[in-house]
Structure formats: C-alpha cells, structure tokens
Design a binder for these strands. Structure first.
Lengths: 204, 204
DNA sequence: ACATGGTTTAACCAAGTGGTTAACAAATGT
DNA sequence: ACATTTGTTAACCACTTGGTTAAACCATGT
C-alpha cells in the first residue's frame, strides 16, 4: 500500500499545516510544530512541499477555495437580491462557525502580501462582481431597490457578515459579552443582518 | 542636553517600531529592522524597552489609544444616534486614511492573543457600550428608531466603517478596482454608509 | 533472492533570532 | 577637577530557524 500510505501522509501534513498556519499565520508558524502536529519528521514537510512558502500557499489556496463559493452565492446566483441577501447571511454565519479562523487568515495574509491574490485571480470560480453589477442595475431600474452601486452594496453585505468574526475579541471587549453571549448575538444576526440590509435598500 | 537627546532616541525607536510592527505584525517584525529604521544600534532597543514584547506592547497601546476615542464618539457622545452615525462615518474614514495599518494591526494582534485586551480594559477611556445601550432604548421608546439591540447596531456601524479597510486587498480583487478607484469608493462611503444605516433604522 | 523505486528518519548546517556584555562617550553633580 | 550616572556602541552568545543530506526502510516487480 505505497500510494495509500503516501497520500495519507500528504493529507496529514496539509491538515496539520492548515491548523497551524490559520491560527498563527505564516510568520508565527514553525515547520517543527507542523511536523509534530502531523506526527512526522520535519524533513517530510520538505519532501512533500519543498518549502515553507509552498506549503503555506497550498494551505492558503485551500482556504480560499472554501470561501470563494460562499461569495459567488451573492455574485453569481440567479435569485433576486433580496433572496440572495437572506440566504447568504444565514448560510455564511453557519459556514464560518465551522471554519472560525478562515476569514481572518485570508485577510491577514493578504494584507501581509497583497500581490498574492493576483495568482488566484485567473483560477476559475474566482469571485467577480460583473454579473452582480448588471443585476443591481436592473433591480434599481425596475424600482425594486433604491439606487446604490453594486460595489457599495457588495461591500456592505461582506462587511456586516464577515467583520463580526474578524473583530470578535475587540467587539467582545466593548460589548462586555462572553463567548456564549457572543455566539447568541451571532445567531441572531443570521436573520437580523438580512433585515438590516433589506430595510435599507428596498423600495416600498 | 541629556534629556532632550534621550527623549529623541526613545521617540525615534517608538516611531520606527510603530511602522515595522504595524505593517509586519509581532511575528514578522525583526528587532534589527526596527533599529535600522530608527538609525540606532540594536542594543538601544533593549536599553529603552527591555524586550521585543514590551516594545510591541508600547506600540500596541499607542495604536489602541488612537482608535479608542473614535469609538467613544459613537458610544459616549451626547448627540442623537443619527447625528453620531453621520459624524462617525465621516470622521472615521478620514481618520483611517491617515493611519491605514491601524485597524488591521489591532485586529490581527488581538486575534493572535485575545487575552491581551484584558490589560487594556481597565485603563480609562476604554470604549464601553453601557451608555449607548440606554440611548438606544430611549430612542426606540420614543419611536425615533426601529427596534434593534445596541450591540447589533454598534457591530453594524463598526463593520460598515472598518471592514472596507481591513479587507481592502480582497475587495479590490473582487470588484476589479485599482487603488485610485478604491479611494473614490471609500470617499463616497463617508456619506453613503451613514445613509445606509439610517435608512435601515429610522422610523418615518 | 535481489534490484528498484519511493518513503522516512536522525543528524546536521548555515543563517538568523532576541538578547547581553563590557567598554567607551558624554553629560551631570559636587 | 573628578566621580558618577546615563547614553551608545561593537562584539558576542545561546538558541531557533528553514532547509539538506545520506543512509535506512519497505513494498513492489522480476
């Protein structure tokens, strides 16, 4: 069972690397720690991934490939804006509870190295706003929603959904909430955020 | 002029440390790089600040002390919620343009070490939501705004204002905007974000 | 049985890392 | 004038870092 074993090790490495890189970042992560977590020799990391940088890139791309479909649900789905806002808000908050480090990891590493996203831009499935722009224009023309640019609306949707997870420690301190109370607040947001957005843009 | 010279060196160190720590984070920053930027010997860093950790804490507290008053403008000012939202949104975006690394730095380091904010919580001027909670309750009771918890409203205000700077590289990629176009979008937000929030919560 | 190929390991390495030291320079107090 | 304190430097140190190497291991094909 050469191939089975081999595949297993490679996956074990990636899984350990994910865990370490996503919680400590590129600079804070140590190859030795990843090896320990994977239960293998440090040399194996280099055998399978050549360098810290390449291992990191594998982890980053993997993380990004989880986030991208979520955003495409807003940008490329065919339902109405209202439906998309409601679905996304509900789904995203559930999604992130399973991957709590993900948004922070992506944002942090992209700020450390903004050019890095260019590598990813031509992979297919990369979120792009063009289709959403047309939809917003049409719904405004039809009087369904108030005038707003697609960019601003998209930023607002992202901000309201993602930020509470990214800034969790900060918000917890300001609002005097513990982990349990915070979880409840996030749960409420599954519907409240959608209402907040739709309240603001919908014509009545 | 011992004191003058001495003060000058200390400030030079702090200024260099700010620049390095805020762009590279605790883990990515190198003491040698900070010394070089300050134009002094590496040993001086330890002479004035003992350790990397303490120098970092000085930088962090300094950064936090810049951000806190901004948030207190929302939480503790006496004007109406609508006025506060309009003022904050306009002021904050201007403020952050002068300190672009600041929100990211604080958020990133707080996620790396969430207990760290506890040190800061009992310094006076630390943003606290209690007064704001009362104000929200009153304005709801008076029929000025629709029902919403103070926590949710506060999170929404922070999210809409801060997130676009934190996630800048990500948003730029998705919306196909360059630095100049992005700056323009941020400028529009000075009023648009306030309208967006008020539209959503105001009774009419 | 044996050669072959990929897999795994322990030991190693050069280049940094934060931090210290001891000597020197400059200012201050007396 | 001289001793003392404070500021500054170059050289150094122990330790960690990512990465390499050469030898061993082990499943397979012949």
């Amino acid at each position: 069972m050469k191939k089975a074993k081999d595949k297993n090790t490679e996956e074990q490495i990636l899984s350990a690397a994910k865990s370490i890189f996503q919680s400590k970042g590129m600079d804070g992560a140590r190859m030795q720690e990843i090896a320990d977590k994977a239960g293998i020799n440090k040399a194996m990391l280099h055998y399978y991934y050549r360098s810290k940088q390449l291992l990191f890139e594998a982890v980053f791309k993997n993380a990004f490939s989880l986030l991208a479909p979520q955003l495409n649900a807003i940008l490329n789905d065919d339902s109405s804006i209202e439906e998309k806002v409601r679905n996304f808000t509900s789904n995203y908050i559930t999604f992130i509870s399973k991957h709590p480090y993900l948004p922070n990891f992506i944002i942090q590493e992209l700020n450390r190295n903004p050019e890095f996203i260019l590598n990813m831009k031509d992979t297919n499935g990369f979120p792009n706003i063009e289709k959403f722009k047309k939809q917003v224009a049409i719904e405004i023309e039809n009087g369904l929603i108030k005038p707003i640019t697609a960019e601003q609306l998209f930023i607002n949707i992202m901000a309201l959904n993602i930020f509470p997870f990214v800034a969790k420690p900060l918000i917890m301190a300001f609002t005097n909430t513990d982990a349990i109370a915070y979880k409840k607040i996030m749960d409420s947001r599954k519907t409240e955020v959608a209402d907040f957005i739709i309240n603001s843009i919908k014509n009545n």
